[in-house]
Structures are given as structure tokens and as C-alpha cells.
């Protein structure tokens, strides 16, 4: 009996979401769907829309669950792809030498990202699975990775390590076998996200790396790597420390960037604002989906995506401003 072939997807993934079970991959994407449209400051003016009917309806669903039903996504069961069109603020029109008296019309950077999200923990088990094989294929084909690490998973770090280790070895054996990548490193850009920054104990842990000057505290990008190291060092598991070394050995140093992220952000009272003594934005009702308590304030959610966009499509996205 012939093995049925799946229906083909028109896009190969550009960016694969990667991380352990419950590390926050799908929540990240849900948050991205709202983050872009409401960013302020340096990243203002970005928008995200579905590139086709399917992705549009998925975008709407993620958004509705997060904002209206105020719940997190359910555990991901199968590889899922989202083709989203990210539109930036229009650049100032440029002058060109053959017509120096006039400006070219402003143009907004516009890129279709296809994100691939799957169940975490696929590599924790040694047995063969179709999803595992497909995920490896996608990791090989994609050019950008968003690796999510849940710092709150006490006792689960060795799982995270095993997952990363196995997956990296699989990908490396497929990509580095021939002489295409002479330096022996994977060609991907990878955004390493330390997630769930809003959790009270993570906030506490990150205290000394935190910038309090803003409305909501956040860890600046240049502190993120140190914070990651601290999170790993704190763990008693010996493998923890190796995770960072593993990443930096497999990817070019210049192609790794660390972010400390939160998909929902801290709770901010509508009148009094953020209260360091009451930061939790989650209400846990036993037997039901966890509820999000107040407004969603994505922290460092669009930044990794825009960074990857600038790395992957420097022409369209423009260099960092």
C-alpha cells in the first residue's frame, strides 16, 4: 500500500520555531500577531497580515484566543505553518543620481515570513516519527530559527538539552556532510529567546539585568546573553551549561542573538500601571484553560522577528536604524 503523500504546502518555511514542550512557541506566534500592530517607539509602524486565506484565518484565531478569550494556545499536535506578511513603516523616499531633484516614492518593506511551528520535544525520544523527520527537513531548509528556552522549567533542563543536542546533530549531519559549509557551522540565523520573562520568579532572577526606565521592565538585548548564562548556571543539572556552548559551537557567533521575551507581558493595572509586587498576568483556574489576567503587553516579541528579517532580507528590510 502506498504511503499517502501529504498535500503540498506552497511555501518552504523561512523561520522555524524550535524548543521544548511548552517553551512558548505557539504563544510567541500568537503574541506576534498582536505585537506588531501595537508596537511603539523604534519599532512603530509595523503590521502583520495573513499572506493567504488559510494563514489569515489562523492569524485571526490566534489573536482572538489571546485577546478575546484571553487564553493560551492548546499544546501543538502537528507541524503547522503560517505564512504571514510583515509590512514595515515606509522608508523616506530616496534621491537617485539621475534625478537628484526629486525623491522616489516612499516604500514600505514587505516580507512574507513563513513560520513553522510544531510540537516541542519531538527529539526527546529516540523512536522514528513522521513529524520528527518533517521537522528536521524544515530545519534544514529554513534560514532562520527562533529557539525558545523556558527558564522556569526546573528539572526539565536536561530534556531541553537532549532535544537540542539530538536535533542539532541531525541537522548538522544533513548539512555539513558535504563541502558546502566549509567553516563547519550551520548557516542559519538564530534568535535565542528566554521566554516567560513576566513570571514573578524570572523577573526576580533577572533583576540585576533589568532596565527599569521603561513603563514595563525589560532586559536589554546586550544583557540577554549574560542573563541566559545565569539561568543556566543556576540549574544544578550539568548539562545546562552546555546548552549555550552547544549553540555557539553550531552557529556563527555573529548569527546568534539573545532576547529575553514575554508573550503576554506583566500585569499592568489600568489605573496604577505596573506593580513590581503584583506582576503575574495569569489566572489559574483548575480544570480550565489558564486565563490571561489583564492587557497583553508583548515584550521583545517582534524584535527577534525583525532582527531575523533584517539579517535574511537586508535589501528589503533595511539595516538596523
Amino acid at each position: 500500500m502506498a504511503l499517502p503523500s501529504p498535500n503540498p504546502t506552497p511555501h518552504e518555511p523561512d523561520i522555524a520555531m524550535w524548543g521544548g514542550v511548552g517553551s512558548g512557541k505557539t504563544a510567541f506566534l500568537a503574541s506576534l500577531s498582536v505585537a506588531l500592530n501595537r508596537a511603539e517607539g523604534a519599532n512603530e509602524g509595523w503590521r502583520i497580515i495573513g499572506a493567504d486565506d488559510v494563514s489569515n484565518s489562523e492569524l485571526t484565531r490566534l489573536r482572538t484566543n489571546l485577546l478575546e478569550h484571553r487564553i493560551f494556545p492548546r499544546p501543538t499536535d502537528v507541524l503547522t505553518s503560517y505564512n504571514w506578511l510583515v509590512i514595515g513603516p515606509p522608508t523616506r523616499g530616496r534621491r537617485v543620481w539621475w534625478a537628484p531633484w526629486k525623491r522616489h516614492p516612499a516604500r514600505a518593506p514587505k516580507i512574507t515570513f513563513s513560520f513553522l511551528d510544531g510540537p516541542g520535544g519531538l527529539f526527546g525520544k529516540s523512536e522514528y516519527s513522521v513529524s520528527k523527520e518533517e521537522l528536521i527537513k524544515s530545519l534544514v531548509k529554513s534560514r532562520g530559527l527562533i529557539y525558545l528556552f523556558d527558564p522556569d522549567r526546573r528539572g526539565q533542563i536536561s530534556d531541553a538539552f537532549k532535544n537540542l543536542d539530538v536535533a542539532l546533530r541531525e541537522v548538522e549531519s544533513q548539512m555539513l556532510g558535504d563541502d558546502k559549509y566549509l567553516d563547519g557551522k550551520l548557516p542559519h540565523y538564530i534568535a535565542v529567546c528566554i521566554t516567560k520573562y513576566d513570571e514573578p520568579n524570572i523577573l526576580r532572577l533577572a533583576e540585576e539585568y533589568t532596565d527599569h526606565g521603561l513603563e514595563l521592565p525589560r532586559v536589554p538585548d546586550d544583557q540577554a546573553r549574560d542573563f541566559f548564562r545565569e539561568v543556566l548556571a543556576r540549574d544544578l543539572d550539568q548539562n545546562a551549561g552546555i546548552i549555550m556552548r552547544l549553540l555557539e559551537a553550531s552557529f556563527h557567533e555573529s548569527r546568534i542573538k539573545y532576547f529575553v521575551t514575554s508573550s503576554i507581558g506583566m500585569y499592568a493595572d489600568p489605573d496604577k500601571g505596573f506593580d513590581p509586587d503584583d506582576p503575574s498576568n495569569i489566572i489559574d483556574v483548575p480544570g480550565q484553560d489558564q486565563k490571561i489576567r489583564g492587557a497583553v503587553h508583548p515584550i521583545n516579541i517582534m524584535e527577534p522577528v525583525i532582527w531575523l528579517g533584517r539579517m535574511l532580507y537586508p535589501k528589503t528590510m533595511g539595516r538596523e536604524r
Binding site: P4, S5, P6, N7, P8, T9, V54, S55, E58, V78, L79, T80, S81, Y82, E134
Partner: peptide
């Protein structure tokens, strides 16, 4: 079915 997955 969800059309954003590659199902069979």
C-alpha cells in the same frame, strides 16, 4: 482539518 498543516 486545519489547512495550515500538511495532512494526508
Amino acid at each position: 482539518t486545519s489547512s495550515s498543516t500538511r495532512h494526508r
